[in-house]
């Protein structure tokens, strides 16, 4: 069937629009919706000198808020790492009535306005709420404490873990687990040596996304946090406070810290994942 007529189509013809156009359009939109606001943010701080900048971002009350935010986000994303994995696991591995509903419910935190989530959680966990009432009787206070911050952060960011782990879990064939078992591995060994290593990159990305999302969470947290200076104030609230004082440069300075932290974390995770995939595929 070969011959000189075989190549009749022009060399560069593709189904999708050309590289130049699609890249151009993509870059334009990235610039408009991501880079421009970020640049604007940095520009806001340009009136400040380095020492002023440092003064603003190293304010003791603010530093306390960093600790609260990072600590809570860390706890929330760890919690999500465990329970998100569990949730993804049952959604992928088991058939049960209501599975599709549960699957849809996972996205609820994305769909719900975060303020609504915050108010609902605060009501639920306050000392008169259904859950808060119960927890109070065993001496645990959630609403208006740092624990409440963790609950709100975990709630709003759990879909990240479930939705990144789920497809990878679906891809792991049951045969790999069975292969492990026929080779004499215990259930524990199969989980840690066969399943987890394949899942680890996705899980880590999910947890990292959950963490960065928690760092920036505002609406859901402020209603349940209690917002006591040095105890339960989060960094986004501090930005909001500066905005209310019309101190835009200070607000931008704080925001730039959050932005930088999130970006570098995502970049590190991305590089690590890239290296992992290159190793596996040998490229």
């Amino acid at each position: 069937m070969s011959g000189s007529h075989a190549v009749s189509r022009p060399k560069h013809q593709r189904v999708l629009p050309g590289f130049a156009i699609s890249l151009g359009v993509s870059l334009l939109f990235i610039s408009l919706i991501l880079l421009l606001p970020a640049t604007g943010l940095v520009m806001q701080t340009k009136g400040m000198s380095l020492s002023e900048y440092w003064y603003v971002i190293s304010d003791p009350r603010l530093v306390a808020s960093y600790k609260v935010t990072v600590g809570s986000a860390f706890a929330a994303s760890l919690f999500n790492g465990v329970f998100g994995l569990l949730l993804a696991w049952i959604l992928v591995r088991y058939q049960f009535p209501g599975k599709r509903i549960l699957d849809a419910l996972v996205d609820l935190p994305f769909a719900l306005p975060t303020a609504v989530a915050g108010i609902t959680l605060a009501t639920l966990y306050s000392s008169t709420g259904w859950l808060g009432n119960l927890l109070e009787s065993i001496g645990i206070k959630v609403a208006y404490t740092p624990l409440g911050i963790i609950v709100a952060m975990a709630f709003t960011s759990i879909p990240f873990v479930v939705r990144t782990v789920q497809p990878v879990l679906e891809e792991i064939s049951q045969e790999e687990e069975e292969a492990g078992m026929t080779l004499g591995a215990s259930d524990w060994a199969v989980f840690w040596r066969v399943i987890m290593p394949s899942l680890r990159p996705a899980l880590l990305v999910g947890v990292a996304l959950s963490f960065t999302r928690s760092l920036g969470e505002f609406g859901a947290v402020i209603f349940i946090a209690g917002n006591m200076p040095y105890v339960s104030e989060i960094t986004s609230l501090m930005i909001f406070v500066r905005l209310q004082e019309f101190d835009f440069p200070a607000a931008s300075a704080i925001a730039s810290v959050v932005l930088l932290t999130s970006l570098s974390l995502l970049l590190i995770i991305n590089l690590w994942q890239g290296a992992y995939l290159r190793r596996i595929h040998g490229k």
Binding site: E175, E176, E178, A179, G180, P197, S198
Partner: peptide, 13 residues
């Protein structure tokens, strides 16, 4: 028993 799976089921990682 030694078991060889249809799609080999090698551990990818």
């Amino acid at each position: 028993v030694g078991f060889v799976f249809q799609n080999y089921a090698l551990f990818r990682h």
